[in-house]
Design a protein around this nucleic acid. Structure first.
Lengths: 340, 340
DNA sequence: TTGTACGCGTTATCAC
DNA sequence: GTGATAACGCGTACAA
């Protein structure tokens, strides 16, 4: 059933049906009602392709997520969920593109072909070819995360440097003088993953500010890697009494490693980091952490994108969030004067 | 840049460009190369809307996920990831629709309007209006889960009855005679959520087969609810020594509740259930559980859908999986002869 | 290889 | 003010 079918059943022309639906011309109440009745009866909805072809927009946005091989963290999952929900509120559909590499078919389909009106990009690296390609395609886009050149794009991001800096200061205030940073995976950091680098920057800066020493560790994005990482840490650096992490996925493993080593949190070892808000409470003990408002971020990214689609010439806005560290139960005073 | 632009730059007609791209007519090597050069230079890709309009298919499938208000479980997340990946392999795009209720705009956009060639439906209830609406819309669809009338649709599902049955038998073999079932949320079960009902059926059947008694509990889908649920269970039914669950999201809370009550798993209390494969290993202690091959399920659902799109008249295939219970460390012999 | 009709909704233009 | 006619957007595939 197309618009012509509706028109003939209602005894009017196709344009009248279109006007009745869009309201861009006035249509008499009687006619409008006749048309509406037919539409309701047949459950008609305009063909999306025809409309997109004519209007030049698809009412669809693309969401680029990390490829399925890497499991999404809770935080990333919250981003996806909140973007999808925000899009639904704006009557926009979301096309999912799992792509990280350079030759990803689904990303290429997004780029040209007019499938989407705009794109939200996740898991951005300091140098990220996807950004340039989106720019070349003149496709409005917003990053959850940003490249090394902050001004080249519109984005919202967590200030990992500031947040890890806060965590270290918090631990230093509690008397810890040997602190570890558990970063994301070595591959991701090597590939120039922004949060990994910025977290490290904030870490070394805070160490210098407090005149204390730190160990900088990369760790795979899963529980097994977390376990292995913390086990190695305790073995090679027994003087370390606290850790900060941005690696949410490794946390269960870190916790397990501490437990297997006979260490109680926070009595023997303090743990803090950056996690999605809903996740910190589920950790045991509840994690003292910078709670990333992942849902807000997704919603705001969507707002930025809608704004950008409406006015591509507008200045590129950047939003940097540094959520404060929420005190919970996973950090405590350093044990004084004793090796473990 | 549209196909006309390419054609004129290559000095041929639009149809020649189309044939060169599709290969549905032979085009001389020389012209093909000229055309390809222009295409590469301009990075041309056919407009998706125009192609969809002409061909009557969108090369896009819809994936209906639970609304964002309810957080996705690990298993659901694995479904989504694997469906998306399988779609990418088949050069299909995935449109995400977060909808559970009856009046969901994004679901309605999927139904009519020709946005998608087919739909994968998750989190299906025994009576689910979405199934009827998809049937009415004559849109090919596949369920991950199924309604009360198995034959009315094409689906792949976990045999929760068989699996929970196995879990109970396993616990009974270990000497447990008072066993709890921790089901999904009371709202979900009341709404006729299939797995909840089937799990309960398998539970009561196994109890009867073994002549033992059980407690049937609903539990919200998060850690806090799991904690509260297990706390109440231990208080009201101190004779219970084991539990089986299909509520993955509640597991951290269940674990916590047991710990807070001073119970060690599996020494004092055995725990088993149904979880996504990658998740059972991360549990502590590693969970004796039926490991749902969530990734296979997503992939197979996609295969079923592709088949169904290709041949809508084909018989509706159903796939029921009953993954065996993998022995790990969370179940053990019932403590004999003593209340706790 | 090329010309052209077609798919379907939108909207500018014309007629009443 | 209200309704109808027709051109347009773009890729596809049949007829020539």
């Amino acid at each position: 059933m197309n618009i012509g079918e509706i028109a003939s059943r209602a005894g009017v022309s196709r344009s009248t049906v279109s006007y009745a639906l869009s309201g861009k011309r006035s249509v008499s109440d009687a006619t409008r009602k006749r048309i509406q009745d037919v539409i309701d009866e047949l459950d008609y909805r305009p063909n999306a392709a025809a409309r997109a072809l004519k209007e030049g927009r698809t009412r669809t946005i693309g969401l680029v997520i990390p490829p399925a091989s890497t499991r999404l963290t809770h935080m990333q999952l919250d981003f996806v969920a909140s973007v999808v929900e925000a899009a639904a509120r704006a009557d926009l559909d979301v096309l999912l593109s799992p792509s990280g590499g350079d030759h990803d078919r689904s990303f290429e389909r997004l780029l040209s072909g007019g499938r989407v009106d705009g794109v939200i990009l996740m898991e951005i690296r300091l140098e990220d070819s996807r950004v340039r390609r989106l720019q070349n395609a003149k496709l409005p886009f917003v990053g959850i995360g940003h490249t090394a050149r902050a001004e080249e794009m519109c984005w919202i991001d967590v200030d990992y440097a500031a947040v890890i800096n806060q965590c270290v200061h918090h631990l230093a205030d509690l008397g810890h003088t040997r602190i570890a940073l558990v970063n994301r995976s070595v591959e991701l950091v090597a590939a120039g993953y922004g949060p990994g680098h910025r977290a490290r920057d904030g870490f070394t800066a805070a160490l210098a500010q407090r005149g204390i020493q730190g160990i900088d560790l990369e760790c795979g994005d899963d529980a097994a890697a977390g376990l292995e990482c913390v086990t190695r840490l305790l073995r090679e650096h027994p003087e370390v009494t606290a850790a900060a992490t941005i690696n949410e996925a490794a946390l269960p493993g870190i916790q397990r490693g501490l437990e297997e080593a006979g260490l109680s949190v926070p009595r023997d070892f303090s743990l803090t980091g950056v996690v999605g808000r809903t996740w910190a409470e589920e950790f045991r003990p509840p994690l003292t952490a910078a709670d990333v408002p992942a849902q807000d971020i997704g919603t705001q990214a969507m707002d930025l994108l809608i704004e950008r689609i409406a006015n591509p010439a507008a200045p590129r806005r950047n939003i940097l969030l540094a959520p404060p560290v929420s005190l919970r139960a996973s950090t405590g005073p350093a044990r004084t004067g004793s090796a473990r």
